[in-house]
């Protein structure tokens, strides 16, 4: 019952924001909000692999690219036709488009998840940095292939993707990945992932099937990266392989590490901070990226455990802090 109420509350809030935000914000600010949401999905999903499980993936852009191109191709060749057919059958446009988008996101996510499974398999044999470099290689290979395949626009890019994404869908994606992460963390499966991160040998000796769990983390992480890619594609209506370079993967990793490995709320916070930072620095023009990289170094030196460390930002934690701060005056 409580769960149904929660779900209804989230949906109502998202619909309300979906109506309000475009009216309150100018298009530039609105776009930043949407990109923040997409980056939050990317960071929280990578946190499942790098933060929870302690595996070291630096190919998240590759999974995102697969989801983006997979879902875009689905919409271009299948989804659009269905929407037309549904609308001809007097189904409201919003419903028809939502249905098609949901399917496209699912296609993108599943395609990515499949790739995540294939990339996760070598993690049975490879450890640490070797795994990292294989994921990096995977990301680059995906990008080179996209750049060379004419059917997806090659290096010219893929235009004309239906722009079905609005704030509601991005918000729903964000809510879904956070919900999944938090519930996973507080379950026996989440504890198994944490155990692998802390000591793989001990975890295995105590009955945790470390191989399956590592692959599981990869598959879940990849799925949501694919969904984020799908949202990205259907928001911008245009894809270019240069959006999915190694630098994009690095950006997402920086979010996860900066937030505090394993902390879901940290990943959310850091994704927002690192998306806003370059925009905030826009007035200093030429010095923008120099300052950005400089601040990244300084942050890592001063807070190597990330903004939130291992902790979760929660209401009880906040109130406890406030009470402590307020105690002397009371």
């Amino acid at each position: 019952m409580r769960r149904a109420l929660w779900l209804a509350g989230v949906l109502v809030a998202l619909v309300a924001l979906n109506v309000a935000l475009p009216r309150l914000l100018n298009p530039y600010l609105f776009q930043i909000v949407v990109l923040c949401g997409i980056n939050v999905i990317l960071a929280v999903s990578l946190n499942l692999v790098n933060g929870f499980t302690g595996q070291f993936s630096i190919g998240h852009a590759g999974f995102m690219a697969l989801g983006a191109y997979g879902s875009a191709m689905f919409s271009l060749h299948v989804g659009q036709g269905w929407v037309a057919a549904l609308e001809a059958g007097h189904v409201p446009g919003v419903v028809a488009e939502g249905f098609a988008l949901l399917l496209a996101l699912l296609v993108g996510g599943l395609l990515s998840a499949l790739a995540g499974y294939l990339v996760g398999l070598p993690s049975l044999r490879l450890r640490g940095d070797y795994l990292a470099i294989v994921t990096l290689g995977f990301g680059e290979i995906i990008r080179v292939i996209i750049t060379n395949v004419d059917a997806v626009g090659a290096s010219r890019g893929l235009p004309g993707i239906p722009g079905w994404v609005n704030f509601f869908w991005v918000g729903l994606g964000v809510a879904a990945v956070i919900f999944l992460s938090l519930n996973l963390a507080r379950s026996t499966h989440g504890r198994a992932l944490f155990a692998i991160r802390d000591d793989e040998v001990a975890a295995e000796a105590l009955g945790v099937d470390t191989t399956s769990y590592k692959v599981l983390a990869f598959v879940l992480g990849a799925f949501f990266a694919g969904v984020a890619g799908g949202l990205f594609a259907h928001y911008l209506s245009y894809l270019n392989p240069n959006s999915f370079t190694f630098l994009k993967s690095i950006e997402v990793i920086a979010m996860v590490v900066l937030g505090g490995l394993g902390s879901v709320s940290g990943a959310v916070l850091a994704a927002i901070v690192l998306t806003l930072l370059p925009e905030v620095l826009r007035p200093v023009k030429d010095y923008r990226m120099v300052l950005y990289s400089f601040m990244l170094i300084v942050l890592m030196i001063t807070r190597p455990q990330g903004l939130l460390g291992n902790r979760e930002l929660s209401l009880t934690w906040l109130t406890r802090r406030r009470r402590r701060a307020g105690a002397p005056s009371a």
Partner: peptide, 23 residues
């Protein structure tokens, strides 16, 4: 610090050198 923190620092240095180079 953790090896990941060191790695992000290295990435930061890399970005700094590239963007500093542009400047």
């Amino acid at each position: 610090s953790s090896r990941l923190a060191a790695l992000i620092t290295a990435i930061g240095v890399s970005l700094l050198l590239e963007n500093g180079g542009v400047l």
